[in-house]
């Protein structure tokens, strides 16, 4: 599936400069091991100064939801304490099957996994699997998310994850409904912008190459134009805009070229041909041509389409 590589790339970028959530997680657990009485936010901060508060909160929430940490208050300070591993198990009430299912779902990440695929991977009977999923769901370990790819398809993922754009559909979906009109408006506005640039070349005196170069725009420029228009309620990313620009390419109105510095340049182009003569004739676009013959109800002699066209 080729859904916008943007966000996942960003994740990678973060991972290379800072610690990934998994490492932070381990560090926190290790810290908690050393202090059986519990650790405070301050402790974590002094141990791991690089970790952003947001990220810290995320990791802690995850550990809390997994039941690995306990939260309690002492002298108005929040403390996190490691749970007894044995207790963890009973607290989760998980048996082996549940664990297996949990890991399968965990592996699927924020793209989620379809119930059928869980069944294949786990080799569990449907009824049993359904029970396990229900129980994990009520415990808020996992959640079911409706996917936009198919209306009746639900995917499962860990409770605290933000579903991937391929599941929610990103900016183009509102409650699983594709916002076709919104896309159409953006498609038109992007084209308007590029077409405007093409028109500007009429007064260009610097030769044909210079004139062509004026027509180029990067996706960021188009994005800026659209953002300034203020027609979008949701915040669009440059990647979102590139999706729209691609539809213009498929409309045959825009072309994309790779520039020297590796970014894509977009420009409005004229088609090579006027509409072909065939489709200007009634028989060129006739919906009943297959039934049209010399004799019978549909024939060129008494054809209404031609009569109307001649009128």
């Amino acid at each position: 599936m080729e859904i916008d590589p943007g966000p996942s790339e960003e994740h990678n970028v973060n991972a290379s400069t800072e610690d990934s959530p998994e490492i932070i997680e381990q560090k926190i657990i290790a810290l908690a091991h050393t202090k059986t009485k519990g650790i405070s936010d301050k402790d974590i901060l002094s141990e791991m100064p690089d970790v952003q508060p947001v990220q810290r909160a995320l990791v802690i929430n995850k550990l809390l939801s997994q039941g690995l940490l306990d939260l309690y208050k002492q002298d108005k300070i929040l403390l996190y304490r490691l749970k007894d591993p044995n207790k963890v198990k009973t607290a989760k009430g998980a048996d082996n099957e549940e664990k297996i299912v949990y890991t399968i779902i965990e592996e699927a990440g924020n793209k989620g996994i379809w119930i059928r695929d869980i069944r294949f991977k786990s080799n569990l009977m449907p009824t049993q699997l359904n029970k396990i999923l229900k129980s994990l769901e009520t415990k808020k370990f996992i959640k079911a998310v409706k996917s936009v790819a198919a209306s009746k398809k639900k995917v499962y993922m860990l409770y605290n994850l933000e579903p991937d754009r391929s599941v929610t559909g990103g900016a183009w979906y509102q409650d699983q409904d594709f916002e076709a009109e919104f896309v159409d408006v953006l498609n038109q506005q992007c084209y308007r912008f590029l077409e405007q640039k093409r028109k500007e070349t009429k007064d260009c005196r610097g030769g044909p190459i210079a004139a062509r170069n004026i027509t180029f725009a990067t996706s960021r420029e188009v994005w800026k134009f659209i953002s300034d228009l203020g027609i979008s309620k949701v915040k669009l990313s440059v990647d979102d805009l590139e999706m729209i620009l691609n539809t213009l390419i498929y409309d045959g109105k825009v072309e994309k070229t790779l520039s020297n510095d590796g970014t894509y340049l977009y420009r409005a182009v004229e088609p090579l041909l006027e509409p072909p003569g065939l489709i200007k004739a009634p028989c060129g676009v006739c919906p009943v041509r297959k039934n049209c013959s010399d004799f019978g109800d549909v024939s060129p002699i008494n054809c209404q389409y031609i009569t109307e066209w001649l009128a």
Partner: peptide, 30 residues
């Protein structure tokens, strides 16, 4: 002209992708 601009978009999309699945068509063509 025969099937409308959305159909033409799909047609061009299949042309540029050579081989493409239904699901990709609706996603890319939006």
């Amino acid at each position: 002209e025969r099937f409308g601009s959305k159909a033409a978009r799909i047609f061009r999309l299949v042309r540029s992708r050579k081989y493409v699945e239904q699901e990709q068509i609706q996603q890319l063509a939006m």
